[in-house]
């Protein structure tokens, strides 16, 4: 199943302390709330979900002087740089298998991965099949 939380619009004035520094999974959507990226804050992610989400939206704010900046801050994927508008996340210690679950569901419903994941250089393990589609099929939500 996909992340069930409602989409939250990114607000450049967001207090970073309100985002968890924990491991987990997240989705990024464009202004029409179409998913453009499914990501994870892994055991290697500096600053957890907080760091990964700021990495996605980071070029929209000035982070000078912050002491917890993601090493790749300012270098989001092109589709994220141009279209990211909404996010939703889930704190999850089993982030890796949950990430694959969400990717598999999206891939089954839409016949392809989100654009951002296609652009990303991270190797995705072989995804399986559900052999059925959800009502989201074709909507790209």
């Amino acid at each position: 199943m996909r992340i069930r939380k409602p989409w939250t619009p990114w607000d450049n004035s967001i207090d970073y302390k309100t985002l968890p520094g924990a491991m987990g999974v997240f989705e990024i959507a464009d202004s029409k709330q179409k998913t453009i990226y499914i990501g994870k804050a892994s055991g290697k992610s500096p600053f957890g979900l907080r760091g990964e989400l700021f990495l996605c939206f980071g070029d929209k704010s000035d982070f000078d002087g912050q002491n917890w900046i993601h090493p790749r801050m300012g270098q989001p994927l092109p589709v994220i740089r141009e279209h990211a508008a909404y996010f939703r996340y889930e704190v999850n210690h089993m982030y890796y298998s949950r990430w694959i679950e969400i990717l598999t569901r999206f891939n089954e419903d839409h016949g392809r991965l989100p654009t951002g994941n296609l652009e990303d250089s991270e190797v995705i393990p072989k995804l399986g099949r559900y052999h059925w589609k959800t009502k989201e099929s074709g909507t790209e939500n």
Partner: peptide, 20 residues
């Protein structure tokens, strides 16, 4: 065969280990 009509993976079950 997993392509047989009527065969469905209802869900990926998350567990303690890295693989579901």
């Amino acid at each position: 065969d997993t392509e047989t009509p009527g065969f469905r993976v209802e869900r990926l079950v998350q567990v303690l280990r890295a693989h579901y």
